[in-house]
Design a protein around this nucleic acid. Structure first.
Ligand code: FES
Ligand code: FES
Lengths: 143, 143
DNA sequence: GATAAAATATGACTTAAATCATATTAAGTA
DNA sequence: TACTTAATATGATTTAAGTCATATTTTATC
C-alpha cells in the first residue's frame, strides 16, 4: 500500500506537527532519532516535503524543520502523494492498467468500496484533525 | 498493498480457474502469454502455488498446471499468503512493530476498519465464489 | 526401454527502492 | 564581514524485488 518512504514521511510529519512550530524548529537529527529512521534518508524526505509546502524549513543557525498553522491544513493524502505519488493508491489490485467500474478486474468489487473509504479518509483528514483527535493521548511513533 | 508477485499469482490462478481442469492442463507458456506477464517469472510463482496446493500440476508430456475442484476451495488470501506472506496485510500503516488497538499509531483508527473489511473478504472469498459471481461476464485479466 | 515434454530446483542477472555520503547554499550571529 | 550552522542538491552505494536462464527430474507415449 505505502512504500517505506511514505511511512517515514508520515511519521516525520506527525512528529513535527506535535513537537514543533515557528519558534521550535527541529533538525533532521532530532527528528530521525525520535521516530527511529535513518537520518540521511529522513533528510531527503523532509526536503521533498518542504518543497511541496507540507512542512516548513529554514536554513542556517537555529534553523530546522517545523509545521506551522498553514501546514496543518495539509492532509494525509498530500504527504503520501508527495512521496509515493497519488496514483499508487488508485491502482488496480491486479496491476491492470486502469481500475474502474467499466472494466473491473475479478477482484474489483471485493475491494473497491473499502479502498474508496480509506482514500476518502486520507483526503479529508488534515494534520489539524489528527492532532485534535489524538487529544491528550501520547503519540506513539517510535517502534 | 500487494507485491507484483502476488498480483501475478492472482492473475494466474484466476486464469487457471476459468480455463483449466484435470483434462485441460495449461503450460507456463500459455498462461503467461494470456495474462501478460514474464514467462520465467510466472513459472516460479506457479511452482510455489502448486507446492502449497493452491493449484495442481503434473509433469511430463501433456502435463501442466490446472485448478481442480479441491483447489477451488482455496481463498484469495491463501494465494496472497503463499507469495507475500499473510503478515504484510496486517502491518501497521506507519510500519510500527505491531498494529493493534492497545497501542495504535495515529493513523490506526482512520484505517483499521476498512482494512479489516478487506481482509475478511479476501479470507472468505474462494475461487469457487469468484467464478460464480463472475457469471457469464468475460474475465478481464490481460492489461 | 528410449525419447520427448513438461514441471522443478537452483542460481545468476537486472532494476528500483532504500540507504548513505558529501559538496553547496542560505541564514543567523558575533 | 567572517564564521558557523543547518538545509539543499546531487550522486554513490547497498539491498531486495523482480526477471531470466538452465540443468535436473518426472511422466506419457512410442
Ligand atoms: S480493476 Fe482491479 S481493482 Fe479495480
Ligand atoms: S498501529 Fe498503525 S495502523 Fe494499526
Amino acid at each position: 500500500m505505502l512504500t517505506n518512504s511514505s511511512k517515514y514521511a508520515l511519521k516525520a510529519v506527525l512528529y513535527l506537527t506535535l513537537h514543533s512550530d515557528e519558534n521550535h524548529k527541529l533538525q533532521v537529527k532530532d527528528i530521525s532519532e525520535k521516530i527511529n529512521i535513518p537520518k540521511a534518508y529522513s533528510g531527503k524526505l523532509l526536503q521533498a516535503l518542504a518543497k511541496r509546502n507540507i512542512i516548513s524549513s529554514s536554513r542556517g543557525p537555529r534553523g530546522g524543520f517545523y509545521v506551522d498553522e498553514g501546514n496543518k491544513k495539509q492532509t494525509i493524502m498530500a504527504i503520501i502523494d508527495t512521496i509515493d505519488g497519488r496514483k499508487k493508491m488508485d491502482a488496480c489490485l491486479l496491476g491492470l492498467d486502469a481500475c474502474n467500474e467499466e472494466n473491473p478486474c475479478p477482484l474489483h468489487d471485493l475491494f473497491a468500496s473499502s479502498r474508496s473509504k480509506m482514500i476518502k479518509v486520507f483526503e479529508e483528514t488534515t494534520l489539524d484533525d489528527l492532532v485534535g483527535s489524538l487529544g491528550s493521548k501520547d503519540l506513539f511513533l517510535y517502534k
